[in-house]
Design a protein around this nucleic acid. Structure first.
Lengths: 201, 201
DNA sequence: CTATTTACATACATCCGCGTTTGTATAAAC
DNA sequence: GTTTATACAAACGCGGATGTATGTAAATAG
């Protein structure tokens, strides 16, 4: 019994991506072998090469799935009467995604720490469209905050946006690299509050 | 003529570390072969294995050299009458080190983007003693700023320190990944000023 | 019901990088 | 002036990962 139905094949494909995530996380992308991925998925390398051209394509297939939750869940409401609260909520939501979506969290950990940005992966170093969009939305939210008068005087929305952007990136990175029971994770909420409070009038 | 004098050997060792940095930066640590490193250094793999146990040891030898400039140049003056200005200066100094010490900059780029944190490299994920020290010094500087009354009211030094710590990390990372002529690099000074200004009374 | 395609498993050939070993000319020790 | 240790170069053997080629049983198309 080798040949499977179309749905079975799709399941195999997902199993392969799941297995790849596990192996990448443990061994790093470079040291991960397609043999390991296949065996974790309960198949052979033949299945891998059937569904994907090579390890690179498998990696990007895995990566794509992790981006979706963010565009869905991290949104800014332009009608919000307190844009700063919206920013604060967005920051908390980012961390929350990492909390309740282990696959996304693991993929981010791989992208952040278990992958070398050379050759085929070099392009990943630049900000993604999603990141740039997040940066832009931060700027717009800060601009609205300024108009509504909840912002401290004399602050440039763009500079604030970048500051928060870097803060968010650092937050994610340190949250990922910290142990679940570590002191850092408990303090995240307070850090987010402090960060936003600094901007309030 | 094979056997060299002790000084010659030391020169070879440095050449190897320089070559390793170049190759690591171009190929990533995993894809870097000791053959490439050796040939760039103008020697053979024999020389590499004479001076270093393996690629890992060569990597850490390279890494160690990049940490020194920071402990030397990023200092906080406890007697400073404006600790916030001291923090601002420290942040600027960090970027300045990257500007005028290409080797340090390249090593940081390798550590940030061209290296997978698994197995022997997994320990690197945690904050180094130097980083923790930087974090601590930030906290103390903010505490002094509070005592001198230059800090905004109601701010906790520790939270501020962490915010600045994440900011600095993000700043370095984005500075490294940005092109020399990119808009981002020109805006760094303003971003540092904004970041610190947010905390001023 | 037959033909063909699918979804893999299996087998094969190749190359690459690593660690080790051996060789060797010279510097340093005595 | 020997002897020994040094600082490499050159050669060896090895496993491991990759990509491809082939085999094959079942699903699907006609």
């Amino acid at each position: 019994m080798v040949r499977k139905t179309k749905e079975d094949a799709e399941i195999t494909r997902r199993h392969l991506i799941d297995a790849a995530r596990r192996v990448f996380l443990e061994c790093g992308v470079s040291r991960s072998t397609l043999e390991k991925v296949a065996s974790v998925a309960g198949v052979t390398r033949g299945a891998v090469y059937w569904h994907f051209k090579n390890k690179t394509e498998l990696f990007f297939a895995m990566r794509e799935q992790a981006i979706l939750p963010f565009v869905d869940r991290v949104v800014f409401d332009a009608e919000d009467e307190d844009p700063l609260a919206g920013i604060e909520a967005a920051l908390r939501e980012i961390i929350q995604i990492l909390v309740d979506q282990p696959a996304t969290r693991e993929t981010f950990e791989i992208i952040s720490f278990k992958c070398e940005y050379v050759d085929e992966f070099a392009a990943m170093m630049q900000c993604t469209a999603g990141q740039l969009d997040f940066l832009r939305q931060l700027g717009e939210a800060y601009a609205r905050a300024g108009q509504r008068g909840v912002l401290r005087a004399g602050l440039v929305p763009e500079a604030l946006a970048y500051d928060t952007f870097l803060f968010a990136g650092g937050l994610i990175k340190h949250w990922l690299s910290s142990a679940p029971d570590e002191h850092f994770r408990g303090g995240v909420d307070a850090m987010i509050r402090t960060h936003v409070a600094l901007r309030r009038a």
